[in-house]
Design a protein around this nucleic acid. Structure first.
Lengths: 269, 269
DNA sequence: GCAAAAGTGTTAACCCTACACCCATGC
DNA sequence: GCATGGGTGTAGGGTTAACACTTTTGC
């Protein structure tokens, strides 16, 4: 087979090809839900182009990794996050989307719990932004973001994505608020409760256990949006704030959902 | 900005880079529905690698075109087909999927009417294969095909894709068979009819017009699967074949569906 | 006690499913 | 006539949406 490329060790431009090649990058749109707000993770760009602009974490794809692996690697390097699952969002390939050279990007999106946001050292310039208050974004990342929001809205109907955005234990009203934010609609409180419970994927956490909140080490959010102050919202504090009956805590029954999927029962919201 | 690449005119390998680059290709999975069978379009590979194997139409992405444009161009060049719409299926990026060099591919899928299959000269080696009788495929195209089938099954629930696969005029029983093949299920004849009519996206073709079939130039299928003989199935011939009442002809009300989409009414099957 | 938030129950409208029945056509 | 396939109507069960009522909590 005729070779179309060669490597010239020591040359200033050692990778040489018969035909022009483009660069391939990956980008990750990471959502979380905290303080009743849907947020995405952005990185402040330290170098050109778009220096000083915010952008989604990502970078050039290596030769020895798949696009998915590359996306996860860049995300880990830049933010120390390791989401349970990332989903392919699509390819963005406008010819002039990067001023340096022809670059196409494979975008992924993922959902993380607020409690998953810990550690990560080389990411002094990472921050969470509410989805409706994004700064100016580098490259075509505004367009990528729009695609991610639309996709999230579509996918949440058929997969219990909301639970990936909430902490281990959550209340149903909280879950409802999340769905309302994502879908931009309002639901009847009572019907929502019944519907979500009827699906059988929730498990109530009995009271005694629910009260033992103090022992549960709550990790402090690692990245904060600009003018944020970390707020510890234990069940007790939540109760102290405003009147009204305390909501019960629930857990997502992962195994039950996995079983439903195996059996072919389709989850739908 | 520091340059990472250069062009050395006249050199045997004129495109030179500081960092290794991968190649990017596009592939198209084209479905059609003919003779009560769901089929995909394959190209017989004339060169290495996988010479003599069948593969989906596609090729290397150029520097001056988006992935979508590249996919459409390759498809046009190889098969003379110009589908109304192609949808991104996903990126396939296993590191060893191409023996020549590192190649990732952006796959698209599209649906075409049997009548759209005409002309195209440089495609002597293109052929339609029933989806359940595919030959051995080149590269990871078997895996790409599986993804395309799954995707088609998912998408058809929320978009009237079936109509893209049928000719301008079709009967409801034909449409039902198509849905059953794609989804692998059976529907009640009567409920199917009512449901699809209730959606309001079909328009009946009145009898006199429906009978004027002869005038309607039917294009002869351009590509045929191996052991196929072209069969002209006019309404009259269809009637001649087997007993039973003739089914009415319908047309897909494209404008009506576009309007529904604008209004936010979601189509669902 | 009062307002606010959470949880439970009820009813009526709607939709979907499973049929029964009738119409048109070839043999 | 009879078998085959297409088109229309209807009754019953299940689901959903809208709302009333009760419980728990802060002030």
């Amino acid at each position: 087979m005729e070779k179309n490329c060669r490597y010239v060790a020591g040359a200033p431009f050692p990778y040489q090809y018969k035909y022009e090649h483009m660069a391939v990058t990956t980008d990750c749109i990471i959502f979380t839900y905290d303080e009743r707000t849907l947020k995405v993770l952005l990185i402040l760009r330290g170098g050109e182009p778009y220096k000083g602009c915010w952008a989604f974490p990502g970078g050039f794809l290596r030769m020895d990794e798949t696009a998915r692996e590359g996306a996860l690697r860049e995300l880990r390097e830049e933010t120390a996050l390791v989401p349970e699952a990332i989903r392919e969002l699509g390819v963005f390939s406008a010819v002039d989307r990067d001023p340096r050279e022809r670059v196409i990007t494979v975008a992924y999106y993922a959902l993380v719990k607020p409690s998953a946001v810990v550690g990560g050292d080389d990411a002094a310039d990472a921050a969470w932004f509410p989805v409706d208050h994004l700064p100016e974004l580098a490259f075509d990342h505004r367009q990528i973001f729009a695609a991610a929001m639309e996709r999230l809205r579509r996918d949440i109907h058929f997969e219990p994505l909301g639970f990936d955005l909430l902490d281990e234990r959550f209340t149903i009203p909280d879950l409802q608020r999340l769905y309302e934010i994502i879908l931009g609609t309002q639901f009847d409180r009572r019907n929502f409760q019944r519907k979500i419970l009827a699906s059988g994927i929730l498990e109530e956490i009995p009271m005694p256990e629910a009260l033992g909140e103090e022992e549960c080490e709550r990790s402090v959010p690692r990245f904060m949006s600009m003018d944020d102050v970390p707020v510890e919202k234990s069940r007790v504090e939540q109760a102290k704030k405003r009147p009204g009956r305390l909501a019960s805590l629930f857990r997502f029954k992962k195994e039950k959902y996995a079983e439903m999927k195996r059996e072919g029962d389709k989850y739908e919201f």
